[in-house]
Design a protein around this nucleic acid. Structure first.
Lengths: 253, 253
DNA sequence: CACGGCAGGATTGTGAACAATCCATGTGAC
DNA sequence: GTCACATGGATTGTTCACAATCCTGCCGTG
């Protein structure tokens, strides 16, 4: 948990310290990042797995990192907690959320429900411009995959799903989906089978073909399969309570 | 947006001032309500329309009402803002959210998407216990309708929809739906046609019949119709920008 | 009479100091 | 050596006071 966080911390701190002293050139963003900016950066860091589930988020440290007072950080952490991407433990601080198996199943069930239902809307709403966006997106995914930049690859892969909501043009659904994607990221970070290749761009490309063909039913079906595969790539066994019975473990010998 | 809001605000403040001073009877909750309790109470007050869209939520006043410091209230207001049931205006305080027509349409579109898709899951998951709950609920709705207690009636009517999510047993979807229901409450409070009878228990009763019959497709269809009717009872016209062109208005004379 | 500017009051935003809590380490008794 | 217990350090929770901001009403000026 330590090293990654610290690296990020130092880099950022060095970057914003000098600029804080002299002048606000590009708005006041650089000097005192507004709350939304800090929120976004931590959120992205979690989604891209530079911060892993269980990582401690200490207020003082983050405050120093972003060059703001603890107060701001507190507020941001509470906001992230409402999104279920960090967990607040009373008097013990905040950590990056560690979704349970039950929660993982529920999140994926919700995604199936929503994204499959969304399929028909997507087909209905997909005009030429949307298709262009989608194709452009696939290009980006492929590029990410080639470059080997895991963070970029992950972000691109996730963006595909929110992009579909974006095409439908319903910001409410989009917000819901964005939340679910962030949580999915945590879930896969924890439970992903080690030998998994990841949500490859190939699947997404085939989905787009169905959109081009205006095949709503086909898209719904394919989306369901796609999501089932994603969940299938996880190891979601219920670990029976953390209280392992030591006596039982060492019973044989 | 002014008049109604002000009335409500004043009434609420005056009504609960005395009670804040005297009653530590049920546990310590009454004395220093924990943050979650305050959140819940304000949320309920909004859902039941004791607080109407546009009503100002002043930190000091609420702090006094609940016998708690301003800090807590701030935190709660931020949480409510995240749910889009209150709007934070920088340096100008918080008000009960006033959803736009666009937002209203999007919320209802999201509800259609989710609740219709949920229909099949509901039928699948509805065991005897669930059916009992549903019938019990209808009884409650009818009771509320008879009693003439508008708040109770509203709450019951809304609970029906979250109850369906509850039956499916997915807390993620349930949370999403709870959010949408709260926002729906605000939306109907603003845009409801004056002569509307409200979401009567009759509709809900017929939906339950379909659940009893395990008719998933029928339920989905009926739910769609039900939601369309709810939205149809609203007056969702786009008021063309608030900047009324004075010159045009008084052009004729 | 209309308009712009100017205090006054109210409300929110922010920082810092203090209190409460928890965890880890060390100490001593058995 | 192991357990119970006390102590210190680190971290969060809370309060307070003050700064910044905005709205309202008033007043003087043109």
């Amino acid at each position: 948990m330590g090293p990654l966080a610290k690296n990020t911390a130092k880099r950022t701190a060095k970057g914003s310290k000098p600029s804080a002293a002299r002048k606000p050139q590009t708005r006041s963003a650089a000097a005192h990042p507004p709350e939304g900016e800090i929120y976004r950066r931590i959120h992205v860091a979690i989604a891209e797995r530079r911060l892993l589930p269980g990582a401690r988020l200490v207020e003082d440290q983050l405050g120093e990192v972003f060059g703001v007072s603890r107060m701001r950080i507190r507020s941001v952490l509470h906001a992230l907690a409402r999104d279920k991407v960090v967990t607040l433990q009373r008097n013990r601080g905040a950590i990056v959320a560690y979704p349970s198996v039950k929660e993982a199943r529920e999140v994926f069930a919700a995604r199936r429900l929503i994204e499959v239902a969304l399929a028909h809307e997507v087909v209905k709403a997909a005009d030429e411009d949307a298709l262009r966006q989608l194709r452009e997106h696939i290009r980006k995914e492929r590029e990410g995959e080639d470059s080997g930049d895991r963070a970029f690859e992950l972000r691109a892969s996730h963006e595909f799903h929110t992009l579909l909501a974006d095409i439908v043009g319903n910001s409410v659904i989009m917000a819901v989906l964005r939340d679910l994607m962030a949580r999915s990221s945590l879930i896969t970070a924890i439970y992903e089978r080690p030998d998994t290749s990841g949500c490859s761009h190939v699947s997404h490309a085939s989905l787009i073909k169905l959109i081009e063909r205006k095949d709503g039913d086909g898209l719904a079906k394919a989306m369901l399969t796609h999501l089932e595969q994603l969940e299938g790539d996880l190891i979601l066994y219920e670990r029976e309570e953390q209280v392992t019975d030591l006596k039982a473990v060492f019973a044989g010998r």
